[in-house]
Amino acid sequence: MSELKKYDDNFLSESISNSSTIGSNADSISSDIQHFLHSVDPRVLGYFDADVTTKLNQYSTTMENDSDNMQHFGQWLNDTYDDYVQTVTKVKEIANSMDFNKVDSTINGVHGTEGKPKEEEEKKEEEEVLVLTPEEEEERKRKGLIGRRGSDGGEQNAFAEGGNGSIGGLQNNAASISRGSGNNTGSYASLVGLGVASVLEGVGALVEEAKEKKEAQERMADETLVEEEKKSSNDKDDSKEKEEKNDNVLLGMGIGLAAAAAAGKFVLSDDDKDEDEEKAIQKYMPQDFSNSDENKA
């Protein structure tokens, strides 16, 4: 994954303008040379070192070509910038249309429980966490149920893979939602189902928003885990494992849901813009959950 991109609207706009100036300057240089060659005494030009006049003529032609190239450059930069602006605008429109409070509720509930109140989900989770023994936890892992508790559908992948809090988790989650593998009732899956995903490319703006959400989730997860630790202080190892699991789940879910809003092509950077959706899905889908049907099973 590439480093964070740095877009400066003022710089890009100014560069488009300056590229035109650069082209004009190159053309001006070419004209100056031609004017000189055609206006001064040719006898003196003939007295120059053998190829000076020839080179001056060549540079005049070169500058003319360079001027044309700069016109193309300006057009390209303008088109590219327009495309970039339009993409960002669309992403923001979609992002603004989302109800992140609802997302938060779902994320904290972990189970994709149709936007039930956060407190209720936290309570339910705490209860479940406290009930599980290490043996039970291991058993659930073997069955591939970790991260799937009480829920079907795309979010499950986020639970399993998104735990590292990476963009990959976000993408996996988005992928699984997009594929509509479950009956998840989260609003973002619905958006994807409506075909919103076909428009967007993951650009910096969305990533930034996703990161903010991720940080919020991390804070909430920390609070939850503190309480968990208090309640399960007698079994630190077990609690730690659950903490990590929850953390992973929450992070992945938070990013994933945000990404889903912009998804379709689960591309969060330009690096991936040319890949089709299926490739993106395959790329970021963890092997264990690459088949939604298996997940369902």
Partner: peptide, 30 residues
Amino acid sequence: GLAETNSNRFYRNGDAVKQVTNMNTLSSDM
């Protein structure tokens, strides 16, 4: 500035490389 975008579309993909190269060619010619 374009390099700092760390962007394919603005600096690294084929078209971007071509355009930026052309621009730098002008610099070399001058």
